[in-house]
Write a protein that binds this DNA or RNA. Structure first.
Lengths: 171, 171
DNA sequence: TTGGAAAGTCAACAAGGCTGACATAAACTG
DNA sequence: CAGTTTATGTCAGCCTTGTTGACTTTCCAA
């Protein structure tokens, strides 16, 4: 049943390229669209209560992942302008969720850290997101998860894939 | 699950749950974030040239997929307010990419269709998106693609999954 | 010492979400 | 038939989050 459901009874041989039909690609595109909505739904609800937005979540996430990261590095990861990021960072700093420390080696740079309160919010947000992912992973099983990761990695722009890989090796 | 155990050789036993660690989940979350950026990058570039946005693309896509769809159905799929959709639809209709026809059975409804010009733009946008997906699929291989679809489907909200399934069976 | 990088800020704007209020036409219901 | 509900459209105003451009301050490095 699993087999026929996945491959319609055909074996994935070298010549079997049905998974590359426009129809299969369309299904993948629509799946990405609908899944991304679910992916962001739970954090979005929590953020709305606190009058924050997705942009704040992203900043919290990547500062959490890479403590002491610089503004420039964050700009590169997030792919927005410094004005856009600054607005978000400003509110997070003013609200005491993020701390900005002048660099020791290069005192022009600012190194970003989560405060205790910042870590708290980050934990609530990411746990909500993980909960859904965990359920999805469990339903789909480890092999599906491996495929999921592989395809997503290929969809990324090479420059972003580097960031992704770098984060993989973070402590 | 029992079946995937049979076909894969990995039994989802108590000890083999490493794919559910918080670290694996975090990797999946970041992969979704970076991949979605790539996913939208190519259409976004084309849309920007024509002063359209992602919202226009979404409308074109789903009208293309479900010709004669009603405004209400589109609202449900897209998950935005009618005011938001109307703004987008208005420009598409004014620009001659979408046609709105009064319903025959129920004359309160409007049925939406792409014009030739609308189909042209939809084709350009979706081909750009498919190109990237095709390359990703080819690199990852059919088994990975199957897993990719499975996990995405599980991430969706149930209500959206129904829409997704319904589109699967469309002509 | 000076050029340029890093960061921050101000102003203005746009897309695309949202709410609320209201209008119209058509269908449905008692 | 009168009243209600449904589907759609529209106006006005707000918010978040993106953009560009201009400008300043700090300060490293050649």
């Amino acid at each position: 049943m699993a087999e026929s459901g996945l491959t319609s009874g055909t074996r994935p041989g070298a010549e079997n390229l049905l998974f590359l039909t426009d129809d299969q690609l369309r299904r993948g595109i629509e799946a990405m669209f609908f899944a991304y909505r679910g992916f962001t739904a739970d954090p979005d609800r929590i953020l709305a209560e606190k009058s924050y937005g997705r942009a704040h979540h992203r900043a919290l996430h990547f500062i959490h992942r890479s403590p002491a990261t610089t503004v420039n590095n964050l700009l590169d990861i997030l792919g927005v302008t410094k004005q856009s990021l600054n607005r978000v960072l400003r509110t997070l700093i003013d609200d005491g969720l993020v701390e900005s420390k002048v660099g020791q080696k290069d005192r022009r740079e600012r190194h970003l850290f989560l405060t205790d309160a910042g870590r708290d919010l980050e934990r609530v947000l990411s746990e909500a997101q993980r909960k859904r992912m965990r359920a999805a992973y469990r339903e789909a099983g480890p092999e599906a998860v491996a495929g999921f990761q592989q395809v997503l990695q290929q969809i990324m722009d090479p420059r972003l894939r580097e960031h992704f890989e770098q984060l993989k090796d973070a402590p």
